[in-house]
Amino acid sequence: MTYDIAFVGTGPEPDNPVWGESAAMAYRHAEGYRERDDCRIVAAADIVRENVEAFAAEFDIDDAGTFEDYETMLDAAEPDIVSISTPVPTHAEIVLDCIASGVPEAVHCEKPMATTWGDARLMAQEASRREIQLTFNHQRRFSPVWREPRRALEEGVIGDLQRVEVGTSTLLDNGTHHIDLAHMYADEAPVEWVIGQVDYREEHVKYGAHNENQGLVQWEYADGTQGIATTGFGEDGVGVHHRLYGTDGVVEVTPWSDPQARVRRDGEGWESLVSGVDNAAAVPPAIDHVVECLRDGVEPEFSARRALSVTEVIFAAWESSRRRGRVELPLRIDDNPLEAMVESGELSPEPADEG
């Protein structure tokens, strides 16, 4: 079987990304689909005409397959899989429209899920109800930098996992990757509670969504494993992207260092687990996973259900800051606590310095 692929939100040229506004992820998705013999890129839509035309030229899409309106594209192209790479506040509407159209069998959306907890829940609910495969691009799961530590855990190299520490810049934008990886290390165990505090004194909007300047979060999985995350620019935090404490040793993951992952068993020195891996290379295997799970009818590793668990920790951390107390899960709100605190004046971030 050959799958027809369409894109919503191509973004500008990938050679000139504007970090925080456009990372040209559609190009990275498309490169993964293009490498597969069972995928055919047939259509793309972007509200900026020159963007979609440049994308079409790069991926050999006919003029008839270029659109400014994604709903028109769905009707005309009838794709099997839709990849979405638009600003975060638009994710929910576009995903829900794709699901409601009854056209695609699968929707693969950039992370994070949405800007409100209610929207994130609704996306997962409707995909499940309509039996549409919905995934979010937590592609780092497929990089050896993070995959090898998982293998080491599964082989009992450091004994039983007791605590996962996360160091990241922000909870929603970058932290969605790192909390997702923490869940992977914790074998996707349910989270019982979350407690957190954030500081937001300078406005920091990435891809259309607010992000705290600094934060500290703790959570507990149902099996008793602990999670801790620190966020902030210019702050040391936990000092690594991930630190996995087991009963018999520790693993550290820092993708920009050498080695990128290392292990120390009790009473021994550090040993390299991973070195010299190109982190950008995780996108093609993530796209492979989307297609192969659709073909085989199995739940993807970065399914909407799993992404929802990650998103719940993020919004629960902000809700804990709003309540000034621990939040028991499931999370029973619909809004975005960080945005709500900004809108109410409880948080008053100064406008970002444009210079």
Rank of each mutant, 00 (worst) to 15 (best):
L134C: 02
A127G: 11
G159R: 04
V145C: 07
R129K: 14
L161A: 11
L122K: 06
A124F: 03
P149C: 06
R147C: 05
L134A: 02
Q139N: 15
S143Q: 04
T135H: 02
R147D: 14
S128G: 05
R150T: 10
T135G: 04
P149T: 08
M123C: 00
S128M: 07
H138E: 09
N137T: 07
D160H: 08
R151H: 04
L153N: 07
E131I: 13
L161P: 08
I132Y: 04
T135E: 03
I158N: 04
R151A: 11
E131D: 14
D160V: 14
R151K: 05
L153V: 13
R163A: 08
R129H: 11
G159C: 08
G159S: 10
E148V: 13
L161V: 12
M123G: 00
R151G: 06
H138G: 11
E148F: 00
Q125I: 02
M123K: 05
A152P: 10
E126T: 03
G159F: 01
A127T: 02
R129E: 12
P149F: 05
E154G: 13
F136P: 00
I158V: 15
F142Y: 04
I158P: 03
D160F: 00
V157A: 15
P144H: 03
S143W: 00
G159K: 04
S143N: 07
A152R: 12
A120Q: 02
G159E: 05
W146I: 10
P144A: 04
